[in-house]
Design a protein around this nucleic acid. Structure first.
Lengths: 238, 238
DNA sequence: TCAAAAGTGTTCGGGTTACACCCATGC
DNA sequence: GCATGGGTGTAACCCGAACACTTTTGA
């Protein structure tokens, strides 16, 4: 912990989203894990997982590392959210936080153990957090809901294959409103974002549903020239 | 500048956009000012204006300051673009660059003097730049063109009042395609982004055009909970 | 046979696009 | 008058919302 006298230190934090059933009505809602701070400032407060940026690791790699260290999760999707660097955001020190946001599959989120210092919170009712983390969570949630409507990120909450009902359930959980199954089907199918597989999902007390797969041939243009940075994929910045 | 041994240093750079007539056909196109580096690494190469982040200034303030110091410009619009922090982006040192993008009025861009070390370039044909700045410019240009279609930023290129033809000219210059005057008028008017004034603009050899004003009552929702950060009042940088 | 979800068809209305047409000014 | 851009009208088209309807399974 070599404090850089009179300098600016850099930290990387991540807002991790997963879908979990609400304890009340059982409907799927957006949740995120927070960690309890164990030192000043804001000792005892809940905060986003993160830590100082190591000199020899990329930003996204730092996000993936600190995220895994505290929550044992490996995200399906990881993207930079924003850099927060106001002078007054951390009492007594100057910290610029590069914040990422991540999506993890629901089944993996269940594996993530809750401890004394790690707990899942409903994204729409988080307590008062350390630093400016409430604003960060709010912004990340806005980006998630916004980006869901023009991108493919919904499939990051699911496994390799999924039914259109499962995909629709993700959209409904994130957007917090019911969607017409018929129109949703046509929108998704015509977008080319997913492609049907040979298999069906049976077991429900109804007609089996076709399983779809994420279409890797149709790239996500939503990040422009930057593409979508994956956690550990080494890349060149040509 | 004392190098922080084994640490990560933070810099702030800005991609500044203005519309200028092309020297060839006279049509308006997107231009940006670059500064020539006068030390290693990349000595002699063109680069984005910027500099190290001071410990007592906010990120946007740093962007506005370094931008003014090198180009004498004061932007109408300033927004964070992205944080670039790959380990290999600057040879020999670890620099995280918080990059902003800015829009300046065309008439103000004309005031900006060109010197031996400051020059305007057509945004679509910049030379090979220092660091990863080519990627940054490409991304900023993508954001500009993208955001023009769902935001009000076009008026940042113009003065307080403007005709719809002038506003359309901005859109055409940025998007590089002609727009139907009739449909453009209706789209803009129905969006509530601008509001008509009492005044007309005469002088052309045709019917006078009504002057419009940016509608401050209709806030731009395009940045969500963060709002649009304006270059905060110049806190004395000594 | 029935319930429930999968999947298809069809109508309706708002918004965009293309383009014809009139208006007001300078020369 | 005439050229030029300002400004209005309108029909065609596209796309999403709403919803009726058929299909296929488990029980």
């Amino acid at each position: 912990m070599t404090a850089q006298a009179a300098g600016v230190s850099v930290a990387v934090s991540t807002v991790i989203f997963a879908l979990r059933p609400s304890p009340h009505d059982g409907r799927m809602t957006v949740w995120l894990p927070l960690v309890r701070r164990i030192r000043e400032p804001f000792d005892g407060r809940w905060a986003l997982p993160g830590g100082p940026l190591e000199a020899d690791e990329d930003l996204a790699a730092s996000a993936a590392r600190t995220l895994a260290e505290t929550t044992l999760l490996t995200p399906q999707y990881l993207e930079q959210l924003y850099a927060f660097g106001n002078t007054d955001r951390s009492p007594g020190e100057r910290v610029v936080s590069i914040v990422y946001w991540a999506l993890v599959r629901s089944d993996e989120a269940d594996v993530a153990v809750e401890t004394e210092n790690v707990r899942w919170f409903d994204a729409d009712s988080v307590p008062e957090l350390a630093f400016d983390h409430n604003l960060i969570v709010e912004y990340a949630l806005w980006r998630l809901r916004n980006k869901l409507e023009y991108s493919h990120i919904a499939s990051a909450f699911l496994g390799d294959t999924f039914t259109l009902s499962e995909l629709r359930e993700v959209h409904e959980a994130v957007l917090q409103k019911p969607l017409d199954p018929a129109n949703f089907r046509r929108q998704i199918e015509s977008s080319g974002q997913v492609v049907p597989t040979e298999h069906l999902k049976t077991g429900g007390r109804h007609r089996p549903a076709r399983l779809y797969r994420y279409n890797t041939a149709e790239p996500d243009p939503s990040n422009g020239p930057l593409g979508t940075r994956q956690p550990s994929a080494p890349k060149d910045a040509s």
